[in-house]
Amino acid sequence: MSDRMKALADAGVSIWLDDLSRELIETGRLADLMKERSVVGVTTNPSIFAAALAEGERYDDQVRDLAAEGADVDTVVFELTTTDVRNACDIMRPAYDASDGVDGRVSIEVAPTLAFDTTATLESARALWNEVDRPNLFIKIPATTEGAPAITDALGDGISINVTLIFGLERYQGVMEAYVTGLEKARDAGQDLSSIHSVASFFVSRVDTEIDKRLENIGSAEALALRGKAGVANAVLAHKAYSEFFAGDRWEALAEAGANTQRPLWASTGVKNPDYPDTMYVSDLVVPNSVNTMPGKTMEAFADHGEVTGDMVSGSYDRAQQVMDQLSEVGVDYDDVIATLEQEGVEKFEKSWAELLETVGDQLEAARSRS
């Protein structure tokens, strides 16, 4: 086991892998990562599945069988992805049991094309939950305006949710509100609140990418000095919002009924600018009761040279606010940044979903031509 990864886990950070493929599952590599890298969870998204299906031959037999049954592209995508996620849930089950359901989680996302359709998102969430049929599943729902009521209703059904594509602090407040409202619905429906879990996936590196671009366009010395600081500062302020929200009488009533807090999850933690330390979105966001979901490259970098120097978040709220104030002073429009990132986030996942459908369509056609 990597000492650096163990130190990260010991600091209260749940280490999740932002990747999944049938190869990882069938070669035993995912199980190995649990032992060697302290991995206790897995996240997926359309981009990850598109890459796995495009590169791997391990899906051929299942595609051929589904083709023989006359399945269409949407059905094949549903069957392939839920099979991988179900098998990953089984591999992660020991971590789920050891943590009383907090970890050992595997996430699967509703189709991004449903991001602005509340009813269809909820129907998809229920279908995925029932098909995978594992207690350690998370259904990923985007934090769009239309996604919020679907999140609430799914939680009310007792479905555990990973809320994804969160960039801004105002949106995050709405996500936490949707979570608590969902728990209240679940309680009123007689659900066991202790069995319902959720994470809020706050994206980090994309904030720096967008804001750095704007700082470079501004070009002043003050602006350029702020490059690479916004992503972490934004996440730190999200943690401040989390610590304030999960307090008070409303939350205490739910906690007494067995409710779990909605943990902050740091997503998009692969460093995109080669000038920055390749582990900064891990080292700089160490805080107890959080999740960091890392692409394999980031995980290996941290295992090799990452540093854990204690809680880097809880005592940094004022410093983070100062960074955000300075960004405003040099002319960065935070609200416009967040609106841009939210729109691009959904568009990127929609593009990946289209690529996934195209890849599966080609494989389906090839399988039928061979039969």
Rank of each mutant, 00 (worst) to 15 (best):
A7F: 01
L8V: 14
S21D: 10
A50L: 09
A52V: 07
A52P: 01
A54N: 13
R64I: 13
A71S: 08
L80Y: 04
A88K: 03
I91C: 00
M92W: 01
G104P: 06
P112R: 12
A120E: 07
S124Y: 02
R134Y: 06
K140D: 06
P149L: 02
P149F: 06
I151Q: 06
L155S: 14
G156F: 06
G168K: 14
E170F: 11
V175H: 03
R187W: 07
S194A: 10
V199E: 00
F203N: 06
V204E: 02
R206S: 09
E216V: 13
I218C: 11
I218D: 07
G219W: 01
G219H: 04
E222P: 04
L226A: 04
G228I: 04
G228P: 01
A230E: 07
A233Y: 05
V236S: 08
K240C: 12
R250L: 03
W251Q: 04
L254G: 09
E256F: 12
R263I: 09
P288A: 01
N289H: 08
T293I: 02
E300S: 14
A303R: 09
D318F: 10
Q321W: 11
E329L: 09
I338L: 01
A339P: 10
K348F: 14
V360L: 00
D362C: 13
L364N: 05
S369H: 13
